[in-house]
Design a protein around this nucleic acid. Sequence first.
DNA 1: AATTCGGGGTG
DNA 2: CACCCAGAATT
Length: 330
Amino acid sequence: MKTRQSTQSLFSVPQQHLFRKDILAWYDRHQRDLPWRANRDPYRIWLSEIMLQQTRVAAVIEHYHEFLRRFPTIEDLAAAREASVLAAWSGLGYYRRARMLHSAAKVIVREHGGKFPMTEKQLQALPGIGRYTAAAIASIAFDEPVAVVDGNVERVLQRLAGRRLASVELWSAANHLLDKKRPGDFNQAMMELGAVQCNPRAPACLTCPVVELCSTRGELAVEAKAARQKQCEIHYALDVRDGEVWLVQRARDASLMAGMWELPEVASMNGVSRPVFTLRHSITVTDYTVRVWQNAVRSRTAGKWIPRGRLERVALTGLARKILRKAEVL
DNA sequence: AATTCGGGGTG
DNA sequence: CACCCAGAATT
């Protein structure tokens, strides 16, 4: 017999009410002033959610305004060329997000007449929108009572529960806890709590609004993760003449940052001459020591002279952007 | 269920 | 230096 509930609740009903009241009151008082909280325009909420996938708030804010300045409406975005969208995304990483954002914009304009889909189910059918993002947009922009589970919420729930929770349990617990009258605020409050109070390293339990309902209170064990960063040295040529820079384009079918622009890679001249400068950069699982050379021998790979004034509009890799900025070319 | 995809802030 | 960030798509 199937008496076992497939859904689980962390708290008794009275505790749930208390939790909702406390966390919403805390959120009303302490929420950060973030750009995407200015209104409930689904286009802007959507953009923020895509940018925020695995990306810190501070990094997103740097790109958010400029992206909206270039593509103020979803029609503008749908009509843009992919290269322009990637240029606006440059430095944010996970460039597939930008391609899927662009393709979803086209779908919304072409198949939905530019009107944003309003339900979690419809949203999740769009490219780049998974379970988390669909629930986030539906609840924040359209008041649909669906809970989100992101990295923050996962941590908060596990600390509340005092144990690890499987994915099914997490979504179930979050949905039980959800305040159905203010789902968008509740979801954001949970994430805000995880980001600001219940952070990974040093949870601020002393000032936590729900500490009395928490079974862990800060002592949650961290799980060991193996992944080691590999170290690697890489060399690039910096050629600037007449206000132009020589750049090359990554292969269209490269697995990493396909089609984006960067400086040409060259052989090491360590010992022969001195690099213009050296910097460090990490991509996925590799920590690069990057040496930049002037007057290096480039191979004959196809490239282009790009006027400095146009660099803002080029889909540079994050590393290329970093180098050009350090060289004061950008 | 496990991998892949960027890049950087932070303790 | 290690860890993790308002995850999704692919295998």
